[in-house]
Design a protein around this nucleic acid. Structure first.
Lengths: 327, 327
DNA sequence: TTGTACGCGTTATCAC
DNA sequence: GTGATAACGCGTACAA
C-alpha cells in the first residue's frame, strides 16, 4: 500500500513514539493505517538506532541440572518484567565454547551478561571481558580474584555448615563426593569448607572422591572408602543430583541408606524435599539468586554499580533441610 | 582512530564478507586494522540489512519442569551448531503471557518460533500466528486442528500403553492423576488414552483425580479413591514430578509403594531412573524432540517444509521403563 | 583491486 | 502540527 512514504509511516512512527512518552494520542486515521498495514515496530531497527538491545545474554553450564534451569526460570520472569529478553546458551563446562558464546553475544550487542563459568579464577573468557565494557555478572562462581561481581552462596561456609551438621549428629568418618573437579570451582570450594570443618572438629578430612560425571554416581569409585575399619559413615555430595543418584546406586547394591551410610546433598533442588525420606541438603535460594542477578545486572546497565569491583553481593549461606532419617 | 572512513572499514567489511563465501584472504593490513580498532561485526546491523536474525524464539510453560529444561538444552546445542541463537521465554501456562511473548518475539523479528502452548486447539496466540508468515512449530502439543506442525509423542497411544502395562501386571482398579487440566492439552490426551485402554480391557475408567499443581501432589484429593472395596491398586500420573512427589506423600502418610499402591509416571525425566526403585514411566525422548524441533524449524525457515499443514512429524510412542517393584 | 553510494526501519532534529 | 533528512552499521551493486 504505502511503502515508505514519510507522509504516512513518518507520522505513524511519530505517534507511536509520542505514545511512549506520555502523550498517547492516537488519531483514528493513524491507528487504522497501522492496522491496515499490519504495522509492527521493528526492534532490530530500534536497537540499531538506540544502541541498546534490551537483551541480556545468559550462559550456564547445562540446563539438564535443575539448579540452573530453576535459576533461569526466575531470571526470565524478572527480565521480562523489566522489558528485557534473554538469550540463553549452554557451555557444557567447555572453555572453548564459553569463548565462542560470549563473542557471539557481544556481536549481538547484548546490554549485559550473566555467566556461570567453569573456573572464575582462571578463565580466558573473563580475561577478555575485562577489556570490554559490557556489564557482566557471575552467578554461582565464587567472587575470588575475577574482579567481577558475583552472586551465589558462600560455598565454603555452606559446606562447612553441612559438615558440622553431620558431626553434630555423631558422625566422625565423613567423606565428600564430587563430579569432575576440574570443571567446577564450586566443587573445589565446597571441598575446602568440608576440610575446614573436619579439622576444626579434630577429625581427619578424607581425600575427595571424584566421579566421572556431575549428575550420575558410579558406585565403584566409592566402594573402597566404604570398607575396612575406617569405613565412612556419611558422605556429602557436591550437588543434589549426584546425591540422589548415589543413594539409588547404594540401595541397588544392597546398602541401607542411611543405615549403612548417610548421604547429604548440596543445592536443594525442588525435587529433593518430595522424596522419602527427603534429601538432606544445603539449600541454595536459586530463584532468589536468579532474580537478584537480573536486578543487579540491570542496575549495572543503568550505570549505577558499574565499577569493576563492587562489593560482591552474596546471599547468606544456605539453610539446612531436616532429614529425619539421618541418625 | 578511523571512525567510519570507507577506505578502512569498507575494505574491512569486504574482506569479512568475502571470507564468508570461500575467499578467506586476510591481508595483514586489514587484519591488523581490525584488531587495532577492536572491530567486532555488529549483528544488529547485519540483521537489519539482511532481514534475517538467525534467532529462534522459544516459549515453554516453565523451566522448573526438567522435561522442558532438558528439551531446551538439546535445542540450544542444535541451534548453536547451525549458527542460530535462542531467545527463551516462559509462559507459565498463561494465555495472556503467551500473547505478549509472541508479539515481542515477532517484533524482534525472530526467524522462527518453537512453542509449547497451553491448548493448541483453542489458542488465541496460534490464531494470530496463522495470519503471520513466521515459521512456527509446536512441541508436545498434539497436532490436532491447530494446522501447525507439531513434534512430540502420541500422548493418547503412550498413555494407553502405560495402562495396558499395568493391566498386564494384574491391576484392575487403576486411576489417573493430573495437574490442572485446563492448563494442558497433553494431560487431557493422556486421560483419553487411559480411558480407551481401560474400556478395551473391559475395566471401568475412574474419573480423573485433578491436583492443584502440576508438580506437587496433594494426597488429600486422592485419599477417597484409596478407600473402600473399590480402592485403587495403581495410578498413572500425567508427569514424573507429580509421580515422584505423590510417592513421597504416600510414604510419608504410611502407605507402602508399590505395596498398597503402584504409581507410574509419564515423561521419563533423567532423575527417575536413578531413584530406587526406579520410577516406572513412559519415556519421552526429550533430547531427540528438542533436536528434531530445531532441525525441522530450520528446514521450514529455509522454505523446505513451509506448507501450513505438513504431515506432523511424530515420534513413536515412548517406551516403558522396567520397574522391578511393580507387582 | 579500491572507493562510493544506497537502503534496511528507527529515532531525533531540523525547517516549514 | 507536518514533512523532510541524517545517522545507527552493514551488505552489495556499481563505478573508478
Amino acid at each position: 500500500m504505502w511503502p515508505n512514504s514519510p507522509g504516512c509511516l513518518g507520522q505513524l512512527r511519530r505517534e507511536l513514539f509520542k505514545s511512549r512518552f506520555g502523550t498517547p494520542r492516537y488519531p483514528a486515521k493513524v491507528f487504522n493505517a497501522a492496522q491496515q498495514l499490519a504495522f509492527r515496530p521493528n526492534k532490530i531497527a530500534q536497537q540499531l538506532r538506540s544502541q541498546a538491545t534490551q537483551m541480556i545474554g545468559v550462559m550456564v553450564p547445562s540446563l539438564d541440572n535443575p539448579v540452573f534451569a530453576e535459576q533461569l526460570q526466575a531470571m526470565e520472569v524478572a527480565a521480562r518484567a523489566s522489558g528485557y529478553s534473554l538469550i540463553v546458551t549452554t557451555s557444557e563446562y567447555s572453555p572453548s565454547r564459553e569463548g565462542d558464546i560470549v563473542e557471539e553475544m557481544l556481536r549481538q550487542r547484548v546490554d549485559g551478561l550473566v555467566l556461570t563459568v567453569a573456573e572464575a579464577d582462571n578463565s580466558a573468557v573473563l580475561d577478555k571481558l575485562r577489556l570490554e565494557n559490557t556489564p557482566c555478572l557471575l552467578v554461582y562462581n565464587p567472587p575470588g580474584n575475577s574482579s567481577f561481581p558475583s552472586i551465589g552462596v558462600d560455598n565454603r561456609a555452606a559446606s562447612a555448615d553441612a559438615t558440622r551438621h553431620l558431626i553434630t549428629l555423631g558422625h566422625e568418618r565423613i567423606g565428600m563426593v564430587a563430579g569432575p573437579l576440574l570443571q567446577s570451582d564450586r566443587a573445589q570450594q565446597r571441598f575446602d569448607g568440608y576440610c575446614h570443618a573436619m579439622r576444626e572438629a579434630g577429625l581427619i578430612a578424607r581425600p575427595l572422591v571424584e566421579m566421572a560425571r556431575h549428575t550420575q554416581a558410579d558406585l565403584a569409585s566409592l566402594i573402597p572408602a566404604l570398607q575396612g575399619p575406617d569405613a565412612l559413615s556419611a558422605v556429602i555430595c557436591t550437588n543434589d543430583l549426584l546425591a540422589i543418584s548415589l543413594i539409588g546406586e547404594l540401595q541397588r547394591a544392597g546398602f541401607s541408606v542411611p543405615g549403612d551410610l548417610s548421604v547429604m546433598g548440596f543445592d536443594g533442588i525442588a525435587l529433593g524435599k518430595h522424596l522419602y525420606p527427603s534429601l538432606c541438603t544445603i539449600e541454595q535460594p536459586r530463584a532468589d539468586i536468579g532474580r537478584t542477578a537480573v536486578h543487579t545486572l540491570l542496575a549495572m546497565i543503568r550505570g549505577e554499580e558499574c565499577t569493576p569491583t563492587p562489593p560482591a553481593p552474596r546471599i547468606a549461606s544456605g539453610r539446612k533441610c531436616r532429614n529425619p532419617d539421618i541418625p
